[in-house]
Design a protein around this nucleic acid. Structure first.
Lengths: 207, 207
DNA sequence: TTGCCCATGTAATTTGTTACATGATTTA
DNA sequence: TAAATCATGTAACAAATTACATGGGCAA
């Protein structure tokens, strides 16, 4: 049956969710979303609630997770909590060990806009860069803060390592923006010619 | 009518395609895909053929691009070529100037796997890092090569700037992988996490 | 003349988001 | 007690990919 092979070919996001469960705790969809926002977010995008819920259903159907309803003592609405199965542990371990390394996916909106520099005033290019710089510094700080919370716990050693990586990554993003600000300034003053007027609406040629 | 506002709220990928057209040439879907692969790819993901075709239809419907069929002299199948309109230039310029700067989207598969280090043998972590390192160095070199082709043309000044950025970005990715290899080795030899930064690779050096 | 790759698309499917529904809990 | 918010989902929609269809040029 094709089903057997499909189990091994889940999208990366499924593995990310199963990875969250692989630390062993029994968690609800809501818990997973919150945790995802505080960890995966730094190097992988954090899926929406609805996608986490549907990934959980898929994982359960594949036999990689099991769930049960939990009645809240205070009369709160019941919730469904998930736990990874033995099959799930085997599968996610195999995935992490044996899947070919594929390149990261980057969609860098700010760079896309700077690539269209012929449509911008130099001040607007700088504005984009400064805002990105601030974003990067903020992310860096949050990575440091989260790493602080995760240290001294042996089981968080590898998550802590990736937070360390994230700290450096966002420091680099910040510095890259600064370097590009310099380059824009140099282009503006130095080698005059291109873009000195800033506004170049006649690029469409013959018209 | 809601239609008028929808025109201004296209997804980023539409603006990317319109941005490709904003340099003024008349291009087919196939041309756009090829060019996208050699430019956008470094900082924005390159959309598939089919998506480029559907974006072109959407842009034409919005009045931002016009198309015509071109009969090939050699009897080859006719093809449709697109050109940006005045409305399109105005729209993409407005987008590039006035849209709020939103954060880049990163889906870093290699980091996701290292985050799950408790499922891996140390050798496997290193393998992932080495392969990512090689990928990053290859991208860096391609960015350098493409920048070589784009220099000395005034209209490519800003694309050239983003290629410069890409060169540094991938150099940094490469160095970040090297730093993490060190951290994994340190963790392995029992001394817990490595020092808290300070010895970071110099981003502006463009090694 | 068979098979393969280039070029130009369309259709089916999957992935992921936003908007909505529901109920309990807190707060003003 | 009304409004805001937390928590748990479902449904409708949009974005994006893979698979497929088509036809010409070219190499074995």
């Amino acid at each position: 049956m094709a089903d057997e092979t499909n189990k091994r070919m889940l999208p990366a996001t499924s593995w990310a969710v199963l990875g969250l469960l692989s630390f062993g705790e029994e968690l609800s969809g809501y818990d997973l979303k919150k945790w995802s926002d505080r960890s995966l977010r730094f190097f992988y995008w954090s899926p929406s609630f609805s996608q986490i819920y549907s990934e959980l259903k898929r994982l359960e159907k594949a036999g990689y997770a099991s769930s049960r309803m939990v009645a809240q003592e205070t009369g709160t609405r019941d919730k469904r909590v998930y736990r990874i199965t033995g099959d799930g542990m085997t599968a996610v371990r195999t995935w992490a060990r044996e899947t070919p390394v594929d390149p990261p996916v980057l969609k860098h909106g700010p760079m896309l806009r700077l690539w269209l520099g012929h449509l911008l005033e130099p001040e607007q290019m700088c504005e984009v860069l400064v805002q990105h710089q601030e974003f990067a510094e903020q992310m860096r700080r949050q990575a440091v803060a989260d790493a602080e919370g995760a240290k001294d716990e042996a089981s968080w050693a590898y998550p802590a390592l990736t937070l360390k990586w994230a700290e450096r990554y966002y420091a680099s993003e910040r510095d890259l923006a600064a370097a590009m600000l310099d380059d824009v300034a140099a282009l503006r003053s130095g080698r005059g010619a291109a873009g000195t007027g800033g506004d170049r609406p006649d690029v469409t040629g013959a018209g």
